[in-house]
Design a protein around this nucleic acid. Sequence first.
DNA 1: TTGTAGGCGTTATCAG
DNA 2: CTGATAACGCCTACAA
Lengths: 332, 332
Amino acid sequence: MATIYDVAALAGVSPATVSRVLNGRAVSPDKERSVTEAARTLNYTPNRVARTLRRQLSEVVALVIPDIENPFFTSLARGVADTAQEAGYSVVLCNTDGDVDKEQHFLDIALSENMAGVVLAPAASTSVAQPLLDRGRAVVAVDRPVPGANVDSVVIDNVGAGRLATRALWDAGFRKIACITGPSEIVTAVDRGRGWAQVLDEISAAPPGMHFLAHADFRVGGGRARMAELLELASPPDAVVAGNNLVGVGALQILNERGISPAEFGIAVIGDLPFSAHSEDAVPVVHLPTRTMGTTAGALLLERIDGHQGPGRRVVIPGELRTPVPDPAAAR
Amino acid sequence: MATIYDVAALAGVSPATVSRVLNGRAVSPDKERSVTEAARTLNYTPNRVARTLRRQLSEVVALVIPDIENPFFTSLARGVADTAQEAGYSVVLCNTDGDVDKEQHFLDIALSENMAGVVLAPAASTSVAQPLLDRGRAVVAVDRPVPGANVDSVVIDNVGAGRLATRALWDAGFRKIACITGPSEIVTAVDRGRGWAQVLDEISAAPPGMHFLAHADFRVGGGRARMAELLELASPPDAVVAGNNLVGVGALQILNERGISPAEFGIAVIGDLPFSAHSEDAVPVVHLPTRTMGTTAGALLLERIDGHQGPGRRVVIPGELRTPVPDPAAAR
DNA sequence: TTGTAGGCGTTATCAG
DNA sequence: CTGATAACGCCTACAA
């Protein structure tokens, strides 16, 4: 591998001059030309490892997410990648599988690899990015907050999303509305459940009890299991709010398997249903602009990397209710 | 950040001895103890950048894929990550968006970051990993082959998968079977189309012409567009083979929107339908063991990293036809 | 503007 | 078994 010394020798200048050319600093035009030419003929590529060691900072940012198979997070990832790559940073994606230890491991690596920053969708509320912050590294939390004074966060208005979904079902005439949200350790999940409870407390003469609030894991299997249980209840609900996209898929699976139509049993989903092949799936959905969350998080991260100081900023992004329009083709 | 010198000073030994302890080399027990203790009290973490610079090789492998939003690739990614992390390597995921330039960029970075290896799902058949191979880096191609003598590859038996899907439709009684496959630049897509053509040539008295073979991009939108076109044909098909999972989703969308049931118009999909909420989607599917592809690719990569020499190995993984079982609940 | 030289933190070589 | 020392490739004072 050609080094900066090889280029310098071929160009007849010092390594320092080569470095200057590479980094766009003032150099006399003729030397600049001979350096770029020498670099090209040697097929020279700067060694990023050495550069990082010297500069104490690499041009890589990490994106740490709990579930790479959830379209919510892959869409988010694209947003982050777009802004970061725009600014010349490479993005490496780390999947924690919701495992706090794996997450910690990745954060350790981000630190010891001198990565410029981390966008973190924390697996749990105990996630700790303090070592990174102590070293002055940029950290932005996304989807869920992270403890720490100087971390920016980009989150959904989860209470509001829960309210929108619940309200949509109420307005459609359903009166016994249940909710399947995520694990009680995940703030996002709890908040969506709170939104559900708020609306019903405000609006309903007889708000349902807590037996209408189910906690699933945020996967298809969780949605299936809780949905099936709700239907077994002695006094079952007539509608359900699904706490995220995958829970929504699971719940819809159960309803479809049992031949229950959306007209008889209402369902509204928080988050966008992935890869839906059916217009019957055009249930009310609270659209979550995941890509925007990603670009926003990326922008905040870049600002921090560029030296922005100050306390953690908090960007709250509202969900947007989308009720299906009657489809003339399907209604034929 | 504590360095190896700090630890050495606190433990009363030389940096070299600390390094030996860290790397599990022979050291007297008492010194070993004082070193580990000093490391703990200083909260010492080895600087991976410096280590990589010195060793000329990092403990990171890259996985380069064309579409992070396609479950086919995320599942693959989990397989690769599992085996690689098992062996102590960190996996960084790079999304090329099918863009050859982005792909090249990531390969350059893998090189200049001294990464140990790359698992590459190439965006195009022109993808060139030669610079990596020249530097002795491990490279494994997955899903699609890559030019180069010493690259191992893990691919689907795409012709076989095309045959299975087509045969399933034929056996179900359909006689005018079309095929929507991927771009003609992608070998995977072409091979699946060849499988389709083979079966019909062998089995049909009047094999369809090439106007029954449509090339879409491998996305939902592509499946939709081509499916709609096929239905407009003066003499339309009565069944279709979808060339991948996303094309399958798109084709199903069109069929569902028009109220066409799988009984009247047959569809078989190569690849697993993601997040399906409907048992009507239980169409014949050629299951592709993506996770296994990932673990296999990871294993081959690790062998190469460990010094395995020799010409490129080729692992071909068969698809597996899964026909839906009649669902008593849905049939009620 | 240009060159010299030192150091980023680690590991490997070579004496002892 | 242990320690001093020289790299790994680059950047950046500092000096010219």
